[in-house]
């Protein structure tokens, strides 16, 4: 009997969210895709915003004044959380796929969360260093 996948509209995500049991691995799979979408949207914005470099010193400085206000700094930090999860979990995916990681992927996932949270806290201190550590 030939295998015929049961495809419904929005089938894959519908099954993932409503029918799969939320093991740590399925949560990581979903988060990898959601953070990935966030990052590609940001990459478009990032390339577009930095094209002001070609308009000269004044235009760029004016734009950076906006991006250095606390709300934008917070967004910058929040973006860092997406980057760190996507990068660390991406390393885990590569280890599972290309090395022997399937045998210890849950330990790798624990490492992803620990390393990710540590780096994200460090990033917060760095980005808000002028506010946090005022003279």
């Amino acid at each position: 009997m030939a295998y015929t996948p049961n495809r419904e509209p929005l089938g894959a995500w519908n099954r993932l969210i409503t029918k799969y049991r939320m093991h740590s691995g399925s949560v990581a799979y979903l988060l990898q895709r959601i953070t990935g979408i966030g990052l590609i949207v940001y990459l478009f914005v990032h390339i577009w915003a930095l094209s002001s470099l070609t308009k000269g010193h004044a235009a760029f400085a004016e734009e950076m004044k906006t991006f250095s206000t606390p709300p934008f700094k917070f967004v910058e930090w929040a973006l860092g959380t997406l980057v760190m999860f996507h990068a660390f979990n991406g390393i885990r995916i590569a280890v599972v796929d290309l090395a022997n990681g399937a045998k210890y992927h849950k330990k790798l996932l624990a490492g992803v969360w620990i390393a990710g949270i540590a780096v994200v806290i460090g990033m917060f201190c760095l980005i808000f260093s002028t506010e946090l550590f005022a003279k």
Binding site: E8, G36, I40
Partner: peptide, 13 residues
């Protein structure tokens, strides 16, 4: 990024 988006698109009917 765009290859990743394409992977996600291919999840759907």
């Amino acid at each position: 990024g765009l290859n990743g988006v394409w992977n996600i698109i291919r999840d759907f009917k």
